[in-house]
């Protein structure tokens, strides 16, 4: 599907030295209509780089399977109370391939003062099917989704590397409708970066989180530092073969059973990759 929007192509890393008309100081030139700012991403990447390189020592397998151009829906497992996987995947692709990645996330982020701005400028987009469709079908972008949602990071450490339900397969339906490949990604190491050892239920939670996670990091480093200081677990990211679903794009509705079948298939692919990666792993810290 061709790009429909003509005059406002999404700002991309391809033209960082975008020539602006006149010499206006307006900083919006770097902020696209999703709220993502390449300048902010650049700053975020350089801040996260030492953590990415020396703390987590992130290692990729099959990064070349991410397309250099054209849309794709990246689907990964999600873990760690403060999950480092999203940042790491975005970092790796943006540095390695030079393409922006839009991360779909729970819209509860949008309600938190200050954080909502950083989230949006950092490439976060509300996980809304219309948003995903437009990014993929109309704008040809890379979109990263965690179908487990918030349940992934909140699961207790005893259940590490067991995947939570992949939603209701909405991500598959969007990929089918947009006619784009799904690229499954398996992440190992994020679970151990901030293990959830207890969960305090929040009664009548208004903020979208049913539990307050208590982590091992909290126990060792205290409530403040422990909320942000990860353990230096080795993170490995494996990109699997793109899955092209055989379906006519643009339909209003897809068969529920087909959607669930494809969703389960992708879940299985990721599970199998995780099992394999865990088997090869000798040490949580060293990898």
């Amino acid at each position: 599907m061709a790009t429909v929007e003509s005059s406002e192509g999404p700002t991309s890393t391809a033209n960082p030295s975008k020539v602006t008309a006149g010499n206006e100081s307006i900083d919006s030139t770097s902020i696209d209509h999703w709220g993502r700012s390449e300048d902010f991403r650049k700053a975020l990447r350089s801040a996260f780089d030492p953590i990415y390189r020396y703390w987590f020592r992130v290692e990729w397998e099959g990064l070349d399977k991410i397309p250099k151009q054209g849309p794709a829906l990246l689907v990964a497992n999600h873990s760690g109370a403060l999950p480092p996987d999203a940042l790491s995947i975005m970092q790796g692709i943006e540095q390695g391939i030079g393409r922006p990645v839009y991360g779909l996330a729970d819209n509860l982020f949008r309600t938190i003062p200050a954080l909502n701005i950083a989230w949006s400028r950092g490439g976060g987009v509300s996980a809304n099917p219309d948003n995903a469709y437009r990014l993929l079908a109309d704008e040809g972008q890379l979109v990263l989704a965690f179908p487990e949602g918030i349940r992934g990071p909140l699961k207790p450490f005893s259940e590490r590397y067991t995947l939570r339900r992949f939603g209701r397969g909405g991500f598959v339906e969007t990929a089918m409708r947009a006619g784009v490949p799904i690229i499954p990604i398996a992440v190992v190491g994020a679970e151990e970066s901030m293990p959830v050892i207890a969960r305090v239920p929040i009664p009548k939670s208004q903020i979208g989180i049913p539990y307050l996670p208590i982590t091992l990091n909290h126990v060792l480093f205290g409530p403040v530092l422990g909320s942000v200081l990860w353990f230096p677990a080795k993170i490995r990211i494996r990109v699997l073969e793109p899955v092209v679903i055989d379906a006519e794009p643009g339909e209003a509705r897809y068969s529920r059973s087909k959607v669930l079948e494809e969703s389960t298939k992708i879940e299985e692919l990721i599970k199998r990759a995780i099992t394999d990666m865990l088997r090869r792993r000798k040490n949580v810290i060293l990898g």
Binding site: H33, S126, N128, D130
Partner: peptide
């Protein structure tokens, strides 16, 4: 609202 799509059709 926080639940809105980025672009309403």
């Amino acid at each position: 609202s926080f639940r809105d799509p980025t672009f309403f059709t």
